Simulated assay, not measured.
Amino acid sequence: MRGDFMEIRQMENFIVVCEELHFTRAADKIGISQPTLSQQIRALEDELGVPLFDRVGKKIVMTQAGTLFLEHCVQMVRHLQNTQDALAEFRNDQRGKLVIGVLPSDLDYRLTPLLVNFHAHFPKVKLKVVSSIYVLNQVLDNEVDIGIELTSISDDRLVRIPLCSEEYVLVVSENHAWAERNEIGIKELRDIQTVMFPEGFTGRELVDGYCRKYGFTLNTIMETSSATSIISLVKANVGGTVLPYPLIKAMNEPTLRIIRITDDAPYRHFEIIHRSDRYLTQSAKAFIEKTIDYFNQGYVEGE
């Protein structure tokens, strides 16, 4: 084949000529003039390098090359229509893929009801949830479509929608010496052994920053990147931990005891983020709306 490949309109017009075997009738059916249609077919034959029709007076018959080309034209036009239908379904949120970045602990304990609800409304959208402590970078690098992240410094590349603010509390086992306490002052955190996320984790850095304001650091005797492991260690009375109250509430662990920090408790501020230049499908917009509602509901219930 020589030159640029023909346009889809040329193939569609060729199919009509094959159906009619008459240029004038085909031109009327397409809605163009007969000379224009004849010129298109000649250009198509020149591009393909073979005759598609034998012209016998006013009649035309398909050549062998024309018959072969018709077969492939019908397939290509059908594939194009299938693609257009699939894209229409995508636009109408019948299918597609949505990648969400979230913090590990919240994926483990808090977001399952949100994901179930979204799937019920958009069952053909493939939802991929990525657990990471680098959600912000993943959004900026286009590795995820939407991120649920702690509030950080402003960035013009991002659209940021506040979700909620969550109070950190001390969590201990029912067998811990402080299990009967309802509240403590933040400075008392220096007097308890803790099990925490490793340094560098956003939540850990937030709590450490609050403690440094009061001139001390946590007495952390064990670190693990798994929220499940932290809770297991706390339940085994290895030490206490400092985590957001709604997260602990979602765990529904009857053997845990929550102790509120009364003076200047640490807070984390959640937001949902996406790149400002990223096209959001209706399903992505719906996910954002459902996330806002979900966190707002959880925050009110946690009050």
Score class of each variant (00 low, 15 high):
His119Leu: 06
Ile148Glu: 04
Ser173Ala: 09
Ser131Ala: 15
Lys187Gly: 05
Leu136Phe: 11
Leu189Ser: 04
Asn175Ala: 12
Tyr168Met: 03
Leu107Trp: 05
Leu114His: 00
Lys128Ser: 14
Ile186Asp: 00
Leu111Gly: 00
Asn175Val: 03
Pro162Ser: 09
Thr151Leu: 13
Leu158Tyr: 10
Glu180Asn: 11
Asp141Ser: 13
Val135Tyr: 02
His176Trp: 03
Ala179His: 06
Arg157Val: 08
Asp155Ile: 10
Glu180Gly: 14
Arg157Ser: 11
Arg181His: 10
Glu183Asp: 10
Asp156Lys: 09
Glu143Phe: 13
Gln193Ser: 15
Thr194Arg: 03
Leu140Tyr: 07
Arg190Asp: 09
Leu163Ser: 02
Val129Thr: 09
Tyr134Ala: 15
Phe122Lys: 01
Ile153Arg: 08
Ile184Lys: 00
Cys164Ile: 05
Val144Ala: 12
Val125Asn: 01
Asn182His: 13
Thr112Met: 08
Glu174Leu: 02
Leu150Gly: 11
Glu143Asn: 13
Leu170Met: 13
Cys164Tyr: 04
Arg190Thr: 05
Tyr109Asp: 04
Arg110Gly: 01
Ser105Met: 08
His176Glu: 02
Ala179Met: 05
Ile186His: 03
Asp108Pro: 02
Val139Ile: 15
Arg157Asn: 09
Lys128Val: 15
Glu180Cys: 07
Val159Pro: 00
Gly185Val: 10
Glu183Leu: 03
Val139Gly: 10
Asp145Gly: 07
Phe122Ile: 09
Val171Cys: 10
Phe122His: 12
Gly185Arg: 07
Val195Trp: 03
Phe122Ser: 07
Gly147Ser: 07
Asp191Asn: 14
Ile153Gly: 04
Val169Ala: 03
Ile148Asn: 01
Val116Ala: 06
Val171Gln: 05
Val139Tyr: 06
Val139Cys: 12
Arg181Gln: 13
Ile184Asn: 01
Ser154Arg: 07
Leu163Gly: 01
Pro162Arg: 10
Ile146Ala: 00
Arg110Ala: 10
Gly185Tyr: 12
Ser105Asn: 09
Leu127Met: 11
Gly147Leu: 06
Val144Gln: 07
Lys124Cys: 07
Asn137Glu: 15
Val172Arg: 01
Lys124Gln: 10
Arg110Val: 02
Glu149Arg: 04
Asp108Glu: 15
